[in-house]
């Protein structure tokens, strides 16, 4: 088996304090092997976004360790973390986050610009990435002129342009119709297969999750067996009702001032 590219050990993240204390992660230990595709699945408030932020070094854990290529990085200086993130990670977001005033190429080369590469090198590598995604003819177009699928391909090109070892995709198909979703999924898994890039996909979408090598189900800040997560999920989905009240009583953050808002979040979840 390949060595782990990302490891976490006893990862804890706590937001707020006192009555507002919210334990987003309660001690997660996992490892992601090089070249693996992993789906992180869970409902809102399950801690999946927090986990992704910690693994992508966008945030620091309250306790525990994140290691990249076997090297603990949580204790590194900010400057080194910025550099690692720029060089080692690519990001694909549900909302694309393309700058509408710039051309597709300018959007794609942003990570290289931040890294401080010369303009010539930036454009060369940017075009290379766009070619790979069959978007080279759109390089000079404004980002706003693209369709949803093209926008997401531009985003993938941007994530790819630094030759990262890991691509984090946060609901990459969340804003796309099923046909376009399939195209984007194929691209992502193609990159994993052909270039050995590790994929970490955070999603609600069971179909997308099923295509990954491995699924990690999160609930209330802990890793759970798939069945446990699915039961609550399908129950709520089939009934169309808010989550059972019994579950609410077991929520660790119940009893705080924020119960109402949590409940409403749950309600939203159940109504999907």
């Amino acid at each position: 088996m390949e060595p782990a590219v990302l490891e976490t050990e006893n990862l804890v993240k706590v937001y707020g304090r006192g009555a507002n204390r919210f334990d987003a992660l309660k001690g997660l230990t996992l490892d992601i092997k090089r070249g693996e595709s992993v789906a992180v699945i869970g409902k809102s408030g399950s801690g999946k976004s927090t986990l992704m932020h910690l693994m992508a070094l966008l945030d620091r854990p309250s306790q525990g360790v994140v290691a990249l290529n076997g090297r603990p990085v949580s204790e590194l200086k900010n400057k080194e973390i910025h550099k690692l993130r720029n060089e080692s990670f690519g990001f694909v977001f549900q909302q694309f986050f393309l700058n509408p005033n710039q051309t597709v190429l300018e959007n794609v080369v942003l990570p290289l610009k931040i890294a401080g590469l010369s303009k010539r090198e930036r454009n060369r590598r940017g075009l290379e990435a766009l070619e790979l995604l069959e978007m080279a003819d759109k390089a000079k177009n404004k980002a706003t002129d693209l369709s949803g699928g093209q926008k997401q391909r531009a985003c993938i090109a941007r994530a790819l342009v630094t030759n990262p070892s890991v691509i984090f995709a946060d609901e990459p198909t969340g804003n796309l119709d099923s046909k376009t979703s399939e195209v984007v999924e194929n691209i992502l898994f193609g990159l994993q297969r052909d270039r050995g890039i590790t994929l970490v996909i955070v999603t609600h979408d069971d179909d997308l999750a099923a295509k990954c090598d491995r699924q990690i189900y999160l609930k209330d800040g802990l890793i759970v067996a798939p069945e446990q997560s699915n039961t609550a999920r399908s129950e709520a989905a089939s009934s169309g009702e808010p989550a059972p009240s019994g579950q609410e009583a077991t929520e660790p953050w119940a009893g705080g001032g924020s119960t109402a808002s949590r409940a409403s979040e749950l309600g939203k979840e159940g109504n999907r």
Partner: peptide, 16 residues
């Protein structure tokens, strides 16, 4: 705001 967030996520330092 989002553009700033993106640049920071992509490794741009607060100083820059």
């Amino acid at each position: 705001t989002r553009e700033i967030g993106l640049m920071k996520a992509l490794g741009m330092s607060p100083g820059k």
